[in-house]
């Protein structure tokens, strides 16, 4: 297995949820007292995570509607307890794993990752989760497996968006096995140290930080180890626009919009665009996975 990924950001960079709330109060208080200079030293650099409100109110989760606010409005209906994930295909121990059993077996850690949406906006998210590699090891990956396929819950009673054929349901995604086993690839189960909210893909979702956000499939109910490249939802909808790989790449434009720059959520009306980084800033960690590949062809 690849070496475990070491976060260059330490626990000290993470704002514990309580402190985060206190800080908000402090800042509100400071603003009230006119002590705006306090905000300066408190605001960290580039990877200062977006706020809880930003991360949980601006979502793409089309099962609940296509507006950014729809998931926050409607995802509360989704039953996430009990929850189980079926792991099948080319594995030694196929079966339906209860979410609580998975959590008992995994070591949850905090990962602050950039999130870059294909729509050219971005966030920084403090996830809690575990490496997908650990979960796959639990099921035992067999030799013939070359890809991993994922599937989102499809429950029309609880998902108002699926009554319309925006894309084909259920939502499916896939990774090459080496991508899935990469230490940056996690299954997230929490946000800011709290259980992940439904609109963000409760109770368990994939996070692949060097790919466009739609690859990071939410509310996963099935993980299949397979031999051939599995179908993926947006690729089925328009292969020209959404490649299987969909690595963040400022040099390969989406046909309908440029991918060279992005806007970080949270900057208000005057937010400046920033240049998009190759592999979303994770080039040093993941570029080797794609050595020799034409990234424009395999976009």
């Amino acid at each position: 297995m690849a070496k475990r990924w070491n976060n260059t950001l330490t626990e000290a960079d993470v704002t514990p949820y309580a402190t985060y709330l206190n800080r908000r109060q402090l800042m509100a208080g400071a603003a009230g007292l006119g002590l705006t200079s306090l905000a300066g030293p408190l605001a960290a650099g580039d990877l200062d995570p977006n706020s809880w409100e930003e991360i949980t109110s601006y979502n793409n989760f089309y099962e609940f509607g296509t507006n950014k606010g729809d998931p926050a409005r409607y995802a509360g209906r989704m039953t996430t307890e009990p929850w189980s994930v079926t792991i099948d295909g080319l594995v030694d121990r196929p079966g339906t794993y209860d979410f609580r059993d998975i959590m008992a077996a995994m070591t949850v850690e905090e990962r602050i990752y950039r999130l870059r949406c294909v729509e050219a906006w971005s966030m920084v998210v403090p996830w809690n989760g575990f490496e997908l590699a650990d979960l796959l090891a639990m099921a035992g990956v067999q030799d013939g497996a070359r890809y991993v396929a994922f599937e989102t819950l499809l429950r029309p009673d609880e998902m108002p968006g699926v009554s319309r054929p925006v894309i084909e349901w259920p939502y499916v995604e896939g990774l090459r096995l080496d991508e899935a086993l990469h230490p940056l690839t996690i299954m997230a189960t929490g946000l800011y140290g709290k259980p992940i909210p439904n609109q963000n893909g409760a109770p368990i979702r994939l996070v692949v930080p060097w790919k466009y956000g739609f690859k990071s499939i939410k509310s996963v109910v099935r993980i299949s180890l397979v031999k051939d490249q599995p179908p993926t939802s947006w690729n089925k909808y328009s292969a020209r626009e959404y490649g299987f790989y969909s690595n963040v790449n400022p040099h390969v434009d989406h046909p309908r919009w440029s991918q060279a720059s992005e806007r970080r959520i949270g900057g208000g009306l005057l937010a400046r665009r920033e240049p998009t980084l190759m592999f979303n800033g994770y080039e040093a960690e993941v570029a080797a996975l794609y050595e020799g590949m034409d990234l424009a062809k395999y976009h």
């Binding site: 601006y58 906006w121 208000g268 009306l269």
Partner: peptide, 18 residues
């Protein structure tokens, strides 16, 4: 709408909303 965007009433991405 411009005022609402500046005041934060158009959500966390006011530019697209506007």
């Amino acid at each position: 709408l411009l005022y609402m965007g500046a005041a934060g009433d158009l959500g966390v991405e006011p530019i697209k909303a506007l």
